[in-house]
Nucleic acid binder design. Structure first.
Lengths: 112, 112
DNA sequence: TTCTCGTACTACGACTGTCGTACTACTTCT
DNA sequence: AGAAGTAGTACGACAGTCGTAGTACGAGAA
């Protein structure tokens, strides 16, 4: 069975996370579940990779964090939410452009 | 202008090199020129990246090296050529499969 | 013949992002 | 009460890429 290796997905982790955040603010655990479900379990991001991406992207100004209490129904525990910034949206869009280019270029070296 | 970053191409350098070697044995300098021309200058592999990929792939049994004197016309200098092995061909093919999967999965996180 | 440009590398240390492992702690389900 | 799920943090290891630098030979121009 074909698996997606971390070296192959490496350049897209930030993009994948930002894609989720483009819709609405979210937090680590929820994001990792969404990635899993959107990819039909084909890609499951590692916790450490995810949380270190948060730290890095916040430092770069692509996302902002805020702590929120359990949701309106009173479920769950305190979480750290992340919201995408304007700079982050710009970054996401440029990454999408880069993907289109990369896809086209890499394809030339694929014998399929 | 959109550029392909090294993190994005990272997982495909081996595949790209092996693609060239699938046609015929070749050597560093020539391979780097071919990558540049096939990609229409959109991707230029760094020398250090290329040569360290050779070392790694030879260690893994994907390629074999042999030293050859200048070509039949007597041009050029002594070079280290690399030839893809059967194991390397298998690896290349599995990487192509992985690419097809990755392409499909990453696309789901791209807003285009 | 000397100089420059192209060819064909090698060495080395720095850096970045991912990973494995481990640990904490609260909540919900059984 | 105990297990499974939720929601993280800490830390050191590792792999692949990169910048920088240096070597050395060949070919063509001045």
């Amino acid at each position: 069975m074909v698996e997606i290796s971390s070296d192959v997905i490496r350049g897209y982790n930030d993009t994948i996370i930002l894609f989720i955040l483009m819709k609405e603010p979210s937090y680590g655990y929820e994001i990792s579940k969404q990635i899993k479900s959107i990819s039909d379990e084909k890609y499951v991001i590692k916790e450490t990779t995810l949380y270190s991406a948060f730290t890095r992207m916040e430092k770069n100004g692509y996302i902002e964090s805020f702590v929120a209490d359990p949701d309106s129904e009173g479920n769950g525990k305190k979480r750290t939410y992340y919201r995408i910034t304007d700079k982050g949206k710009e970054y996401y869009n440029s990454k999408c452009d880069e993907w289109e280019l990369t896809k086209e270029v890499v394809q030339r070296f694929i014998d399929r």
